[in-house]
């Protein structure tokens, strides 16, 4: 089999997002959430600017592997502009997807580029890499959402 199988994991959209990550920056004076991947030492900070329950801006900083960086980048593009409740639903769908669980076609559509990362389910050692930024975003939005309610 050899390295050919890597093409399944490292699809162009994943490599593009890892090499040229979107929204990889700090946002000043907004809440952030820090999360570590204890198995590898990677860490991430996710920042979000929320008003009236809508995520106006979301960004991340940190270092990590191709999968974690690409996943973080795509996460910001999927979540940005969404309502918190919707965003958290998408995060939940994504979490199901990368664990190899079936999600609805509608959810697949809504996840867009993030749906591509679903292939990580076939590489169980890398699920945590894919999940890191989404978990951090969920924790952050959970706090933010709690304030609004």
């Amino acid at each position: 089999m050899g390295l050919a199988k890597l093409n399944e994991l490292y699809k162009a959209v994943i490599l593009d997002n890892a090499n040229y990550p979107q929204n990889k920056r700090e946002i000043e004076n907004v809440p952030k959430f820090h999360m570590d991947n204890p198995t590898c030492g990677d860490s991430i900070d996710v920042f979000s600017k929320v008003s009236d329950g809508v995520i106006d801006d979301i960004a991340f900083t940190g270092s990590g592997c191709t999968i974690s960086q690409a996943s973080a980048s795509i996460m910001t593009t999927v979540i940005k502009g969404k309502k918190i409740k919707k965003a958290r639903q998408l995060i939940s769908d994504f979490s199901q997807l990368i664990q190899g669980k079936k999600i609805s076609d509608k959810a697949m559509d809504e996840l867009g580029d993030a749906a591509v990362i679903g292939v990580v389910a076939e590489f169980p050692a890398r699920i945590k890499c894919a999940a890191l930024a989404w978990h951090a975003a969920d924790e952050l939005l959970n706090k933010e959402g709690g304030k609004d309610d």
Binding site: M1, G2, L3, A4, K5, L6, L9, Y10, C40, D42, G64, C65, T66, I67, S68, F123, A125, R126, C129
Partner: peptide, 18 residues
Amino acid sequence: HPHDVATALDMNGIAVRA
């Protein structure tokens, strides 16, 4: 990233730690 190296090596049957 070493995680990417380890996944790639695993595709060649090679078990390393990252």
